[in-house]
Each structure stands twice: as structure tokens, then as C-alpha cells.
Write a protein that binds this DNA or RNA. Structure first.
Length: 428
RNA sequence: GCGGGGAUGGCCCAGCCCGGUAAGGCGAUGGAUUGCUAAUCCAUUGUUCGGAAGAACUCGGGGGUUCAAAUCCCCCUCCCCGCGCCA
């Protein structure tokens, strides 16, 4: 969420940002918030004065009683104050709530380099890497390919859990684990601490991380429990330091989160419906950084280059795009996507998303940095996919397909799976 | 699930029985002083509004009683220990 002080002192920064986003609804909301805040401040002042009077009177009564003098006159005045105070409190509380809810709904202030656009087609390409392989045979959709290799069973998964789930089997399980271990090992070498977080969170913590109201239809909630299954390890890792003050000397904190992720979202996704591209459940290795405000842009570049290093080592062609205003969402100030080449769709598809959330997420979670007793400020948070295994698997299965129906395993992954070089079709 | 104990400022902890400005310690920051890996002394060290002076708020959350609630009453949440059940 945004800082009310920013809106109070520099409303034009917020106005210009919403203009850039061309978000009329939020522009209207911003002006409403400014109005509520003005009213809140003047009413608070009055309330303050009445409370002050109450405290003074109360103290005088106390003094009189100690001296065993008559206090009935003062007590009469004191008896009338609470009702007035209560009425004012109600309005002040109401305004406060309206302001807070409004602030939660305003998006983060964008970095100046964020391009203007209406949807993902307007994202700006920054660079490309890798050579796109030409295939002289017909590529199988990866879902079909996996079934012919006997390494995935969508049918039976559907029988017991419905669409959006899969039984991964045999070498596919090894490959999935290899991707995880490969990413974990590399990032650990870069100084990131591995974290396997709780896979479920309470509502209060989840509300700090994201706006549950527009996320609710995406989240799985446990029945009869105040617990939500996580949609990404970004969420519990970000919430880990909720309501804490972190000593600036130990920043940045760099984590590599590993979790299974659960999302209800699913729907039509064009070509190759059967497959791993969008699932209710998938594994993901995620990078997360808590840092000092002045360092976050440096770390944003670091995160995307880590992700690039992983895909380069796996020799998967990709491009980096800078998300435009229409695609960036509310939390990030700037977001890169890494899109892997899909030879079947003949286009790049999102496999990594890398965001600098600046102080937006941290303010909501109430995570500050500084010295205890010294000046405190809201720190910055950043997150980026390292490898979402399901989508990386799609890229490998498509790009490394061979005419005989086998799939070549990227060399860097082989040490993590008994030096297996290819996944061969099962002999019938 | 049952029984017991807890939640107080960045951390530890007192106050609660018996209502009247939230004590003390640790850590941190600033200063003073002295040379002995440092010690000692002083000050500051929750949030908000305000240019400032100042004031208000703050004892897990929400109600209530009262002129006045950390303290009394009611409801709720979470944490810890033991038992039970279980991977």
C-alpha cells in the first residue's frame, strides 16, 4: 500500500502515476482519499481536544478526592464528555477505515522506465538470448509427448482430482526434482538461503501479502480452518518478517524459497490444453530479497540475471520483456518477465516474473528496517521466479524433442538425475 | 479434543488481588569523561496529528462498568506446557 504521507505531501506524484496507467477509477479514488484525509485530520484535532479536557478533569477529580474535597461540579462536567467523544470517535474511525481501504486499492508508484500499454502485447522487449532450433519433423504437444513417454498420467489424475492435476511419473519426477536442485544449488552459491515455508497461511498474514479480495477466487481455503494454501512461496517468505524491525546491518536478506503452489485459477489457454503450462498445483523455486530502499533497483537487475543464468545454462532460448502499465499489476513498481521460446506455438511464453515491489508490500506487512531507537523506514521487497518446474518442463520437452520421440535432458541437469541423457519412449 | 500457563514499547520483565500519568533491565543512538579489548556517567530510544509549542493514542483483539481501566466484568484470537490422538 502507498504511504498516506506521500499522498498528503505530494499528491501529484500519485496523480501522474494513475494518469500514466490511465486508470480513471483509481484517479477518482485518489481524490476521495485526499478529501477523507483532510476531514480526518481536522476531526482528529477536535477529538484530541475533547479527550484532553476529559483527562484534565479526571486528574483534577482525582486530586480533589485525595484531599477529600468536594468534586461534584467537576464530575458533572466529566459525565457529559464521553458521549461527545464517542460520537466523534465513530466518525474518525470510519474515515480511518475508508482511507486505509482506499490506500490498499491504489497501485504502487511505477518506475519511470515502465512502458505504457494496454496488455501483454505492449510489453517491451529488452533482449533475446539463445538460438532458436529449426525442427524438420512435427513436434508433439508436450502433454501428448509425456503420455507417449509414459511419464505423466493426466487421465487418472482427472479421475481422482479433476482437471488441472497430474500424476508425474518416472523420469519426469526426476527431471522435476533435478530442476529444483539445480536452481537451489546455483542460488545457494550466489548467497541465497534456502527456505521451505509453511504451505498454508492465516488470513491476516495473507492480507498483508496481497489483496485477498481480488485473489480469493484463486486461493484454496481449508474448510473449517483459518488457513489458505499458498499460491507461491513469495507469500509466506514475504510474511515471515511481518510486524518486525530488521537491523539495517544484516540487510539484504536473500532467500530462495521452495514450495508446491496451489492455484484455483485455470481456464482456456489456447493451444495444447492438456499439459503442465497451467496447473492447480506446481512446484516453484522462488527468489526473494528484503533490502534497504536505496538498493532495490540494483537487486532487481540481480534477480533477473540469476533467472537468465539458469535458463542459459539449460540452453533454453528466451527473451526478457519489461511489463507495460496494462500488464504489471498493482504491487510491482517494475516487472520483468522472462519468456521461454515455445517452438510449437512459435512464440515466447512467460516462465519467470521478476518484480521490485519497493516499499508497497513491506508497508502493508509492516516490515521496517533501521536501528532500534533510531530512525526506522519501510524496507523494500523483491521477488522473482527462479524456476517454476512445470513451465520449465514444458520448455525442455518442446525444445529438446527428438524425431524418435525421445527428449534430451539439458546437460546441467544430468548430474541431478543419475547422469541420464535422454528420456526414451517406454518399450511396449 | 481435555487440563494448565501466558500475550505489556526493538527484546526481557514488573504492575493486575486493591482502578488514579506504564517501573526496571538489556540492547541501540547521541554526548561527557577517562587510555587499557573497555568501563563509568548523562540524555534519547512506541504510534499519530502539528511549522512549533503541545496534545492524543498505545499494555493480544473487541465490547462493558466508571469522572477515570494494563488493572474490574463479558466475548474472541493466538502462543507455550502436559495429556490424548496421529504421521
Amino acid at each position: 500500500m502507498l504511504d498516506i504521507k506521500l499522498i498528503r505531501e505530494n499528491p501529484d506524484i500519485a496523480r501522474k502515476d494513475l494518469e500514466k496507467r490511465q486508470d480513471r477509477e483509481k484517479m477518482k479514488l485518489l481524490e476521495e482519499i485526499i478529501g477523507w484525509d483532510t476531514e480526518w485530520r481536522s476531526l482528529s484535532e477536535q477529538l484530541n481536544a475533547d479527550r484532553h479536557r476529559r483527562n484534565v478533569v479526571s486528574r483534577e477529580i482525582s486530586d480533589l478526592k485525595k484531599e477529600e474535597k468536594d468534586a461534584t461540579a467537576l464530575m458533572k462536567e466529566a459525565a457529559e464528555l464521553p458521549e461527545r467523544i464517542k460520537q466523534q470517535e465513530e466518525r474518525v474511525d470510519e474515515l480511518r477505515k475508508m482511507i486505509d481501504l482506499g490506500l490498499m486499492r491504489l497501485p504502487n508508484i511505477l518506475h519511470e522506465s515502465v512502458p505504457i500499454g494496454k496488455d501483454d502485447s505492449d510489453n517491451v522487449e529488452e533482449r533475446r538470448w539463445g538460438e532458436i532450433r529449426e525442427f524438420d519433423f512435427d513436434l508433439k504437444p508436450h502433454g501428448e509427448l509425456m503420455e507417449s513417454l509414459g511419464i505423466a498420467d493426466f487421465e487418472r489424475a482427472r479421475k481422482i482430482a479433476g482437471t488441472g492435476f497430474v500424476f508425474m511419473m518416472g523420469d519426469l519426477v526426476l527431471l522435476d526434482q533435478a530442476l529444483i536442485n539445480f536452481a537451489l544449488e546455483y542460488l545457494q552459491e550466489q548467497g541465497y538461503t534456502p527456505v521451505e515455508p509453511p504451505f498454508a497461511m492465516r488470513r491476516r498474514a495473507y492480507e498483508g501479502v496481497t489483496d485477498l479480495s481480488d485473489f480469493e477466487d484463486v486461493m484454496y481455503k481449508l474448510e473449517e480452518e483459518d488457513l489458505y494454501l499458498i499460491a507461491t512461496s513469495e507469500h509466506p517468505v514475504a510474511a515471515m518478517y511481518m510486524d518486525e524491525i530488521i537491523d539495517e546491518d544484516i540487510l539484504p536478506l536473500k532467500y530462495v524459497g521452495l514450495s508446491t503452489n496451489f492455484r484455483k485459477e485455470i481456464g482456456a489457454h489456447g493451444l495444447d490444453t492438456k499439459g503442465l503450462f497451467r496447473m492447480h498445483q506446481f512446484n516453484k523455486v522462488e527468489q526473494f530479497i528484503f533490502c534497504k530502499p536505496e538498493d532495490s533497483w540494483k537487486h532487481h537487475e540481480e534477480l533477473i540475471s540469476n533467472a537468465e543464468a539458469l535458463f542459459q545454462m539449460m540452453k533454453i532460448p528466451y527473451r526478457i520483456v519489461n511489463d507495460c502499465t496494462g500488464d504489471i499489476g498493482t504491487v510491482a513498481a517494475k516487472k520483468y518477465d522472462l519468456e521461454a521460446w515455445s517452438p510449437r506455438q512459435k512464440k515466447y511464453q512467460e516462465v519467470v516474473s521478476c518484480s521490485n515491489c519497493t516499499d508497497y508490500q513491506a508497508r502493508r506487512l509492516n516490515i521496517r528496517c533501521g536501528k532500534v531507537g533510531g530512525e526506522k523506514r519501510t524496507l523494500h521487497t523483491l521477488n522473482s521466479t527462479a524456476i517454476a518446474t512445470s513451465r520449465a518442463l514444458v520448455a525442455i520437452l518442446e525444445n529438446n524433442q527428438n524425431p524418435d520421440g525421445s527428449v534430451t535432458i539439458p546437460e546441467v541437469l544430468r548430474p541431478f538425475m543419475n547422469n541420464l541423457e535422454t528420456i526414451e519412449p517406454k518399450k511396449q
